[in-house]
């Protein structure tokens, strides 16, 4: 991994950001908010509410219908071009003709960094794929593929990390282990991290801030601060204060759904 002094993590400002897909499907209602530099923000909401669309808009992979995204004073393309952004997609998106090691190395090539075999192997070990470096994705389970994709997005030491349900296919034990290990990496570098998730407990244990979204079109119905110190303790999710916070998030989700149903009924 690069050893130069890392530039400070970026803050992200969404200014009236909205997305309506061709055909009139409104995915994201106009949203204005700021995501602080160096913190982990979880986007929680029901399936299909537009969380992933917000993540893609921030990455600049979708063009907004209105408003814009500002990452540390620049448009998303600028930070992408410098290879300072990484996305873990919902689908692992591994290239089938490359081994696990080759897929992780691809990120360094795309980010125009010299390939660092030791850094690659270290990350492969960290995500629990030690011994599978030469294996092609076709021979891996869904969870293993997702872990390889996580290694790929961490290997470039991005300043901005966008994780779209990164643990969706990972088994429960590995998920707990990854939830322990991975934040240490982005905490150490103070990476600005955005985590899209369905899992309330995952949001509580990993994030510094939780944004709860309504059903589509996505609007923020609750903005909840997570007060737990870092590094997070292994049993955090079972502590009464974490359970209370999770219940708060769940209530906000339920309230968001009820409010949406009321507004639909009123129409």
């Amino acid at each position: 991994m690069a050893s130069s002094v890392p530039p400070p993590p970026p803050a992200i400002a969404l200014d009236g950001l909205a997305k309506t897909f061709p055909g009139g499907v409104e995915a994201v209602a106009p949203t204005t908010l700021t995501l602080e530099a160096g913190r982990t923000t979880a986007l929680v909401g029901p399936s299909g509410c537009g969380k992933s669309t917000i993540l893609r808009l921030i990455a600049g992979l979708e063009t907004p219908s209105a408003g814009g995204v500002d990452i540390a004073g620049e448009p998303p393309l600028a930070i992408r071009r410098r290879g300072e952004l990484a996305v873990a997609f919902q689908d692992p998106s591994l290239l089938p003709w490359r081994s696990v090691r080759g897929n992780v190395a691809l990120a360094m090539t795309l980010a125009r960094r010299p390939t660092d075999p030791r850094a690659i192997d270290r990350l492969i070990d960290l995500v629990g794929l030690g011994g599978f470096g030469d294996t092609r994705p076709g021979a891996l389970s869904g969870g293993m593929r997702q872990r390889a994709a996580i290694a790929r997005c961490l290997v470039t030491e991005p300043r901005l990390l966008l994780l779209d349900e990164p643990f969706g296919a990972v088994d429960e034990l590995t998920r707990r282990q990854l939830a322990q290990d991975l934040p240490r990496i982005w905490e150490a570098r103070g990476t600005t991290t955005l985590l899209v998730t369905h899992s309330v407990s995952e949001a509580v244990t990993l994030a510094d801030r939780i944004l709860v979204f309504s059903p589509r079109p996505a609007t923020v119905v609750a903005d909840i601060d997570v007060p737990f110190e870092r590094p997070r303790a292994p049993g955090l999710a079972t502590r009464p204060e974490a359970i209370a916070l999770a219940e708060r998030v769940s209530s906000a989700l339920a309230e968001g759904r009820a409010a949406r149903e009321r507004s639909l009924a009123a129409q």
Binding site: G60, L61, I79, R81
Partner: peptide, 10 residues
């Protein structure tokens, strides 16, 4: 998504 991956690195 493979193209998204390439684009995500600008």
């Amino acid at each position: 998504t493979w193209f998204d991956l390439v684009h995500s690195y600008g």
